[in-house]
Design a protein around this nucleic acid. Structure first.
Length: 487
RNA sequence: GGGCCAUUAGCUCAGUCGGCAGAGCACCUGACUUUUAAUCAGGGUGUCGGUGGUUCGAGUCCACCAUGGCUCACCA
């Protein structure tokens, strides 16, 4: 017994040799398909007695000697087929007996209903489109090994029908976002994925190298700074949906590459972005899921706008019992945080302390849609300062199902303040914070030509898809999540 | 990176106190022309994740390693 192949693989390889000796190509030509499985069942009354053709994967075989039943699965679902020796002929039936579960077939025949009421295709002609050399996972439990499901997603898609639904839904969500924005005059643009400077977010980038130019490059961690350059350039409503890369840990909410959509609108501010966010999300949910009330981790998430708004200071006061309007300095803020049990380094700026308390004591309580407004300037280096409180910015995040789904602000257009913010980030970088922003002179130069007042919004598409498909892990909404290679 | 858990047949999983490696599906042989988790009669197909160790004897106990899951940390 060779160790290369399992018994079942050997058997299937032998069957290929038999097929070839019978003059059958195990990897056949395209089959002229007229219908899909689900359609044959749903439109049975119109199709009964008619000749149709479909192709799909053989999922079950029930052989009765000189006749066989089987189930054929295509993208739409499964339909039963029925094959009789006296219908297709002895030779054809003999070849059918060399088939295995997993093989790809094209069949044509007449639609009828069996005694037991099952809509079935009575096969008159069929051909082999692809012989499967490996057996499929078990038909009742499907593939549950999470590792294998992600590594061999094609198997997951074949044997777990609900997985296919999630990814079809994802595609519709992405299309729905595009439709919504395109219909409102936004221009979809494409900006570089490889950056000489990784900016626009606090994250560690992936580094790569360009040989001909002899220089290092980073994969983008955000699309923000290029899209704002386009606003400077006079494009008033732009967006980009695309892949972002962050060199960080992997979790049920984080994949190293993920999809964001960033939206920028000139002559707008974060108030406009709030309306845009709740309308975009709720209308996409309605068009894709048919409802604004979603099942989400055993609870009902109601996306009907308008969503409540709470400032970060109000939220912190409400859930942590600390009123930062009365705590104006870092020297006071740090002990207040420690009193709540947080470990905070000496010299942590007030804004960062507020943010940490928010994340620790407020975020776990958020489930229904809510906008948290007015983030501290220290954690918002690209957002405009509030006119009434320069320590805070016109920034909000939208939380859905307890997860941050959108981040937006009235953009900082003042090049002098922007330079100051970058310098503050640089000093944090010098202090060892690898996620602090880098100085982007090229971007500052663009701002110095003048940028109109602008509202900007970023939405984590994967997390939105998680919400709308009730998925608890980001890996369940990414076809091929990042994995360590096997062996 | 820390903690906990998992890894046994192609797949889903059992495996008691350390004593011959098991079941269902799939697969193989045979029967069967309306079955549908088809049925009936027979067949076990295996580097028990890897490497060491303890032991008369290890799937089982110990150590280390690998991969994955959950979780904490980190991070939007």
């Amino acid at each position: 017994m060779t160790e290369l192949y399992s018994e079942q693989e050997l058997v299937r390889r032998e069957k290929i040799m038999k097929l070839l000796s019978l003059g059958v190509n195990p990897y056949g030509e395209k089959y002229a398909v007229t219908h899909h499985a689900a359609e044959i069942i749903s439109r049975f009354d119109a199709l009964e007695g008619r000749l149709i053709a479909l192709s799909g994967r053989l999922m079950t075989i029930r052989s009765h000697g000189k006749a066989s039943f089987a189930n054929l699965q295509d993208e739409s679902g499964q339909v039963q087929i029925y094959l009789r020796q006296d219908e297709v002929g002895e030779e054809s039936y003999g070849i059918f007996e060399l088939l295995d579960i997993g093989d790809l077939l094209g069949v044509s025949g007449e639609v009828f209903r069996t005694r037991r009421g099952e809509v079935t295709v009575s096969v008159k002609k069929w051909s082999l489109l692809a012989k499967a050399l490996r057996p499929l996972p078990e038909k009742w439990h499907g593939l549950t090994n999470v590792d294998l499901r992600y590594r061999q997603r094609y198997l997951d898609l074949i044997v777990n029908p609900e997985v296919r639904k999630v990814f079809i839904l994802r595609s519709k969500i992405v299309q729905g976002i595009r439709d919504y924005l395109n219909n409102r005059g936004f221009l979809e643009v494409e900006t570089p994925v490889m950056h000489t400077l990784a900016g626009g977010a606090s994250a560690r980038p992936f580094a790569t190298y360009h040989n001909a130019l002899d220089m290092g490059l980073y994969l983008r961690i955000a699309t923000e700074l290029h899209l704002k350059r386009l606003i400077v350039g006079g494009l008033e409503k732009v967006y980009e949906m695309g892949r972002i890369f962050r060199n960080e840990g992997i979790s049920t909410k984080h994949n190293p590459e993920f999809t964001s959509v960033e939206i920028y609108q000139a002559n707008a501010d974060y108030e406009d972005m709030m309306v845009l966010t709740e309308e975009l999300v709720s209308s996409v949910a309605f068009s894709v899921c048919g409802s604004m009330q979603l099942d989400c981790q055993g609870q009902t998430l109601d996306l009907t706008p308008p969503w409540p708004r709470l400032t970060m200071l109000e939220a912190v006061k409400k859930f942590a019992g600390i009123d930062f309007r009365e705590i104006g300095t870092a020297a006071e803020a740090v002990p207040a945080a420690r009193q709540k049990g947080l470990t905070v380094k000496d010299g942590t700026p007030r804004g960062e302390v507020i943010n940490e308390i928010f994340e620790e004591f407020v975020e776990p309580h958020l489930f229904q849609p809510i906008f948290i407004l007015d983030y501290p300037v220290e954690v918002s280096p690209l957002a405009k300062r509030r006119g009434d409180d320069p320590a805070m910015t016109y920034r909000f995040e939208a939380f859905l199902g307890g997860s941050e789904v959108a981040n937006a602000f009235t953009e900082l257009t003042d090049p002098i303040d922007q330079r100051l913010r970058f310098e503050q980030q640089l000093s944090r970088r010098a202090a060892g914070d690898e996620e602090a922003h880098m100085m982007d002179e090229d971007f500052l130069q663009a701002l110095e030509y003048g940028m109109p007042p602008t509202g900007g919004l970023g939405i984590g598409v994967d997390r939105l898809v998680m919400m709308l498909t009730d998925s608890s892990s980001i890996r369940d909404v990414i076809l091929f999540p990042t994995m360590r290679p096997r062996e």
